[in-house]
């Protein structure tokens, strides 16, 4: 009996558990700490890593929910760009707070469109959101006319991405998403949907509503992420958040939320986001060029998926 219980715990630590992600983070910190102790292991550098991680986490919380439900959202980078540009363009006309809200709302609208197409036109989520990735990027270029809008010095919007504001935003969002996922019916239904859509339907869960809400939440989080990113860059540009979706998905999976759904958590995504940010930061510090960084990140994503994937469920990845 005791042995069996230990076995259960071990299994949990592999899928949706937090042990392996924490160990990965530790390994990354130890390696770069050993390679460049005076530059990697400093408080200012830790702040840089945390700030970077906060951006990934903000967008990643929404994507985590989508992945736990058994789907995927590839559109977050482009949606972030549209939200950032809309907010930056509107500040002079409507004031900072309404502009921020509208920026986030536009993210929610894009997410809702993803969800509606996914549910009612029955297109697999990776295709819907891939289409949105291109569409939203096109819209970003269209509405910006290819120009960038400075947010440096713009009240509120300009300060969102600074340390520690961005970390506090991520922490507040973490609390909200954690309660939603772990303490409400909606969160449980998201897991049930990722566990078995067939059974979730049998027991009468409102699946269509859940799916649309999920993608909308992911869009809202991506919208907020776009504002933070624009603030970090000092300007909202049409290429804002390019390939952000890859970093975010890597953070989610590295955190221990497998693409096969049902298990995982937003707390895991925090660890994954810090780990991937520490990795990127460490690679820069030891002087690797950005092309090598991209190769390393790609390999980390494959590695994380290999560890977290449930092969028996691979047929149902949507």
């Amino acid at each position: 009996m005791a042995g069996k219980l230990a076995g259960e715990k071990l299994k949990l630590s592999f899928r949706g558990g937090i042990l392996i992600p924490l160990v990965s983070l530790l390994v990354i910190v130890v390696i770069f700490g050993a390679l460049a102790p005076t530059r990697f292991l400093t408080i200012p550098n830790a702040q840089v890593v945390l700030t970077q991680a906060a951006v990934l986490a903000i967008v990643g919380f929404g994507v985590t929910l989508v992945i736990i439900s058994g789907s995927i959202d590839l559109s977050v980078g482009s949606v972030a760009a549209v939200a950032g540009i809309v907010a930056a363009q509107l500040v002079p006309q409507v004031g900072p707070i309404p502009a921020l809200l509208l920026g986030v709302a536009i993210g929610g609208v894009a997410g809702a469109v993803n969800g509606l197409v996914f549910v009612y036109l029955r297109v697999p989520s990776f295709l819907v959101t891939l289409a949105m990735l291109t569409t939203a990027r096109g819209i970003a270029y269209l509405i910006s006319d290819g120009e960038s809008f400075t947010v440096y010095g713009v009240p509120i919007l300009g300060d969102l991405g600074a340390y520690p504001t961005v970390v506090l935003i991520a922490a507040a969002l973490l609390a909200l998403f954690w309660i939603l996922l772990n303490k409400t019916q909606m969160g449980l239904y998201i897991r049930a949907l990722g566990g078995s859509e067939h059974i979730a339907r049998l027991v009468g869960l409102p699946l269509n509503r859940i799916k649309v809400s999920l993608f909308m939440l992911s869009g809202l989080a991506a919208g907020l992420g776009g504002l933070v990113l624009a603030s970090r860059q000092g300007a909202a540009t049409p290429n804002l958040g390019t390939s952000l979706e890859l970093d975010v998905i890597t953070a989610v999976v590295l955190g221990g939320t497998p693409l096969t759904g049902c298990v995982g958590n937003v707390t895991n995504t925090v660890i994954g986001a810090i780990a991937i940010s520490a990795l990127a930061n460490g690679l820069i510090i030891i002087g690797l060029t950005s092309d090598v960084q991209m190769i390393v990140k790609g390999m980390v994503l494959v590695l994380a998926i290999l560890v977290a994937l449930e092969r028996s469920k691979i047929g149902i990845i949507k």
Binding site: A192, G195, I199
Partner: peptide, 28 residues
């Protein structure tokens, strides 16, 4: 028709959960 990753309790109550109100929010 049980969902493997969910707990016994979650499976038994799936779709008919007991909730309580906390600050206006319905929690499990």
């Amino acid at each position: 028709a049980v969902i493997g990753h969910l707990t016994i309790t979650q499976n038994v109550f799936l779709g008919r959960e007991e909730t309580r109100s906390f600050a206006g929010v319905k929690l499990l």
